[in-house]
Design a protein around this nucleic acid. Structure first.
Lengths: 189, 189
DNA sequence: ATACCCATGTAAAAAGTTACATGATTAG
DNA sequence: CTAATCATGTAACTTTTTACATGGGTAT
């Protein structure tokens, strides 16, 4: 079997990410982009160059419908998920996740560093540590904000993703600090 | 200024990843690929489709030289890094890392899950937990192997990357377990 | 023999980013 | 009036994966 029908076509994870946003609330391409750069920035990103085309695709597949928002003075296009889109999204949710394709430049640099590069690497760790401290603060702020919304149905799942942010950031922070201490001890010898 | 000379051309991180491997030992494209799928698989990957073209590019830029391995019966091509390649690699090492472009499908699914999806999500967590347990075992095995090579100059840096593997895996494992417990407590209500 | 690594490579497709073009609205 | 933000979109480019083609060597 070589050809597959529309139902069997392999769909990109971008489509599902967009459908996910639409499953929470009808949104414009701009709104969706904001969701990614704000709430989801620590574990997902999408650029306009992908969002607008997949919105078009979602409409073609019958997973979303578009309507011009008449209450909006700029001509904002609101996309709304259809029942078919919801079903498609739900079945994607239940599928096993694709292997995470992780590419970590810092790890790569550490792995290939030679004894002469220790000072460079130390600087990278210090920069990273500063960024992680900031990220952790942002998570703690998010946690405070989230506690005000305990009543919402989505609260439990948001707590889980936030919890991952905190745990993984703390682990990486610990690693940076241990590594800096280790490099210091090497320098002193 | 629109055009830039070869020295200023923006280079892909794939080139540096390959130069990194070559900086440890002269290797063929096949060897390099094996490095990525074996030692580096937890934080970097490259496919043949990238490795062979960048090897060609590295030679063009004067960062590597190729020589047919005459001792090898299959016609293996050995690439060796040049002093210019080493210098280029070292200066890349010292540059700040590019922001990590992280896309985590599991997090995405958890974030968008609705109360009805709890059983699906639970299954995903269980699968993830099993994989992390395996990964952790692989790290511990690596640790045992590494201890036999304490004398080598690269040992300290390898310990650091391994340490990150262990810390980050444990953090994610903890998250999975907490989440499963949390979903269980929700189900019981 | 035959299956499975070793070994090199390419073509095409898919995925993703960046830079630009366009224009309305709002806040200072 | 001007800068920032809202808003839609596309073209060109870069990056990355996947699938294929090819063939020698090695172990059972």
């Amino acid at each position: 079997m070589i050809r597959e029908g529309a139902a069997g076509m392999k769909k990109s994870s971008t489509l599902f990410a967009v459908l996910g946003v639409l499953s929470k609330a009808p949104s414009s391409g701009y709104d969706i982009r904001r969701q990614f750069t704000e709430s989801l920035r620590y574990f997902w990103s999408e650029s306009y160059g992908q969002i607008y085309p997949v919105l078009k695709e979602a409409v073609q597949l019958g997973y979303a419908v578009m309507q011009q928002d008449s209450t909006d003075s700029r001509n904002k296009k609101l996309y709304r998920i259809t029942p078919a889109g919801e079903e498609c999204f739900r079945s994607w949710l239940a599928e096993p996740v694709n292997p995470l394709n992780y590419r970590d430049e810092l790890l790569l640099k550490v792995f290939f560093a030679k004894p002469e590069d220790q000072e460079s690497i130390r600087t990278l760790f210090e920069r990273e540590e500063a960024e992680l401290v900031q990220a952790k603060e942002a998570y703690l702020e998010q946690e405070r904000q989230l506690k005000l919304r305990m009543e919402e149905a989505d609260y439990p799942m948001w707590v889980l993703t936030l919890r991952y942010g905190i745990l993984s950031t703390e682990a990486r922070l610990q690693w940076c600090r241990e590594s800096i201490a280790f490099l210091t001890s090497m320098r002193e010898k």
